[in-house]
Simulated assay, not measured.
Amino acid sequence: MLSEVTATRYVTPLREGGSLPGIVEADDLGTYVMKFTGAGQGRKTLVAEVVCGQLGRRLGLRVPELVTIQLDPVIGLGEPDQEVQELLKASGGLNLGMDYLPGSLGFDPLAYTMDPVEAGRVVWFDALINNVDRSWRNPNMLVWHGEPWLIDHGATMIWHHNWPGARASAAKPYDASDHVLAPFAPDVDAAAAELAPLVTEELLTEVAADVPDEWLVGEPGFDTPDALRRAYVEALLPRAATIHERLTLGKRTERGPSRAPGWLTDHLTPWPHPTKDGGTGGIGARTEDGTT
């Protein structure tokens, strides 16, 4: 079970992510990146963070420690941003926190390197959880004390958004061509030989048990939280055994980070933006890592 702490101070929002996570201090004197139940992506994002984050940690991958955080919405009364205030008001109760890694830097494949064995372990893990969000456009990796750390697993296990089709979805292959670690010749077969035997029914059951009941209740087709936890186990267990056989590392796509379409941005002049006149500022501008 995850440790539970209580938020004592809201420090600042992190605007790199679409869910608007924030840095908070807690009553255990720790500092956490907090993800909110009231965010637009909903509680399934937090479920994915717990299942995949805890699984990664149990497999020996570097994932920041996770905790649940009790939030009193009154903590945000001093926040001047109305959007943040509304998010905090909508997120009273139990939320998710990840250990804050002070001084960490975003992983850049042009600045850092990784040996094929470790790269293979990360790529295999992402194939297992069907992570569509660790690409060269958006690595979702940090470098802390010289070591790579894996973050942001909310966009994984896409099948849990449609449980009637989960079995077929979980059986699909994984295209790692755009994975941020694809250039480092990841040794996926070695990773599968090492990690697949560790992904047992017992391990997955223990990982799923870390998800709080209140994030699982009310799911259509499931009478109890434990029944829904069992569905996560049944989706991941067979995938672990064979996903390396259905993983491809082809040619990376050439298109750059996604941008707003012209029909949406053309009327924004005189605001400059990356799709017109070589501008780099203004609403909708993106940094090199694809964030706004």
Score class of each variant (00 low, 15 high):
Ile129Glu: 02
Ser104Asn: 03
Asp126Glu: 14
Ala111Asp: 08
Leu110His: 11
Tyr112Gly: 03
Met114Val: 15
Pro109Met: 07
Asp126Asn: 12
Met141Ser: 04
Pro109Lys: 05
Leu110Gln: 14
Val132Ile: 12
Arg134Thr: 04
Leu142Glu: 05
Ile129Pro: 00
Val117Leu: 14
Arg137Glu: 06
Val122Trp: 15
Phe125Gln: 06
Thr113Gly: 15
Arg134Ile: 07
His145Asn: 12
Ile129Asp: 00
Arg121Tyr: 00
Pro109Thr: 05
Arg121Gln: 13
Gly120Pro: 10
Trp144Gln: 09
Met141Gly: 01
Ser104Gln: 06
Trp136Leu: 12
Asp133Glu: 04
Pro102Val: 08
Gly120Ala: 11
Arg134Cys: 02
Asn138Ile: 04
Ile129Tyr: 06
Phe125Ile: 08
Asn140Tyr: 06
Pro116Ala: 00
Phe107Asn: 04
Gly103Pro: 11
Met141Val: 01
Arg134Asn: 07
Pro116Lys: 04
Leu101His: 03
Asn131His: 05
Asp115Pro: 05
Ala119Met: 12
Asp115Phe: 09
Val122Asp: 03
Asp133Leu: 02
Val117Cys: 09
Ala127Leu: 14
Ser135Leu: 00
Asn131Trp: 07
Asn130Leu: 14
Thr113Val: 14
Gly120Ser: 13
Val122Tyr: 14
Val132Cys: 10
Arg134Gln: 04
Asp108Ser: 13
Asn140Cys: 07
Asn140Ala: 03
Gly120Phe: 07
Trp144Ser: 15
Pro102Cys: 09
Trp136Gln: 10
Asn131Leu: 08
Gly103Trp: 08
Val122Phe: 14
Leu105Met: 13
Asn138Phe: 03
Val123Asn: 08
Pro116Asp: 03
Ser135Asn: 02
Leu101Trp: 00
Pro116Cys: 01
Phe125Asn: 02
Val122Cys: 11
Val143Leu: 06
Ala127Cys: 12
Thr113Met: 13
Thr113Phe: 14
Val117Met: 10
Trp124Ser: 03
Trp136Met: 07
Pro116Ser: 05
Pro102Thr: 00
Thr113Ser: 15
Ala119Gln: 09
Asn138Tyr: 03
Leu101Tyr: 00
Asp133Gln: 02
Asp108Met: 12
His145Pro: 00
Thr113Gln: 15
Thr113Cys: 13
Trp144Asp: 10
Asp115Arg: 14
Asp133Cys: 01
Trp124Arg: 03
Gly120Cys: 11
Val132Thr: 14
Asp115Cys: 09
Leu105Lys: 15
Trp124Thr: 05
Asp126Ser: 09
Leu105Ile: 11
Arg121Val: 01
Met141Cys: 09
Ser104Thr: 12
His145Glu: 15
Asp108Asn: 15
Ser104Ile: 04
Pro116Leu: 02
Val143Pro: 10
Trp136Asn: 03
Met114Asn: 01
Trp144Lys: 05
Ile129Gly: 00
Ala111Tyr: 09
Leu142Ser: 03
Val117Phe: 05
Trp136Lys: 02
Leu101Met: 08
Asn131Lys: 01
Leu142Pro: 00
Ser135Gln: 02
Asn131Cys: 11
Asp126Trp: 07
Val123Arg: 05
Leu105Pro: 00
Pro109Cys: 13
Asn130Lys: 11
Ser104Asp: 07
Pro102Lys: 02
Leu128Gln: 08
Arg137Asp: 11
Leu101Pro: 01
Pro139Ser: 11
Leu110Gly: 13
Pro116Trp: 02
Arg134Met: 06
Leu105Asn: 11
Pro102Asp: 08
Met141Gln: 12
Asp108Leu: 07
Asp115His: 12
